[in-house]
Design a protein around this nucleic acid. Structure first.
Lengths: 104, 104
DNA sequence: TCCTTAGATTGACAACCGTCGATTTCCGCG
DNA sequence: CGCGGAAATCGACGGTTGTCAATCTAAGGA
């Protein structure tokens, strides 16, 4: 699984303060959002626009960071209609910390 | 103490594979070195030349990485004669992992 | 069908990073 | 003093990164 190139990607992702802030923001319960939108899963879950609004960076920048976090396996995204709902992959995050404790 | 800019520096340091390899190499007991040189402390401990020889990168590059690791607090250096003996700061390293588990 | 909204993609830019060769600084020893 | 070895610093180079404005794609609703 974690072929070690995975740790590399995860550490690189985590090394950026903006991306750490995104992970933090994803911890909060997603605000109750606009009417008519149903959050698809249980647990904290935000769509791109909500993240953009909280982090205060341009939409392409957020999209870029979300791609990196997703590719590193630290967050997962489920597409529903025009939205993409992001949520933390708690298992992967814990795995990074654990792997770090061993390999450092 | 760990003003959070410290975590930033540590994560940046750790994000580089070469620097992780240096931390690994510093785990081994320093080879018994050339005659006449006394390693100043107990525990694994290498000087710049030894690290360079193991990591196989140019001397300025090693020096550069050691500065980053030292500034991040992950390794400590004691100067003795013309040599600088590097050793891991185990406490700081453990602190990073712990801090990561909380702040991630 | 057209318009609006969410998000991805592109292109550009300045800043930074890892690496190296060359040079400089520091230190111990004749 | 001058020499030789260890390490820091300098200057440069290609590659990467974070950010944004502009554009494009996709999905819904009138």
């Amino acid at each position: 699984m974690s072929s070690d190139g995975m740790l590399d990607r995860a550490l690189h992702a985590i090394a950026d303060p903006t991306r750490r802030r995104i992970l933090q923001v994803l911890k909060e319960r997603g605000a109750d959002a606009k009417a008519g939108t149903e959050k698809p899963v249980h647990g904290p879950c935000l769509c791109g626009g909500e993240i953009e609004q909280r982090i205060r960076l341009s939409q392409p920048t957020i999209s870029h960071h979300m791609a990196i976090l997703t590719k590193a396996g630290l967050v997962e995204a489920t597409k529903q209609g025009q939205w993409r709902w992001y949520r933390r992959n708690e298992r992967a995050i814990r795995e990074v910390v654990k792997s770090l404790r061993g390999k450092l």
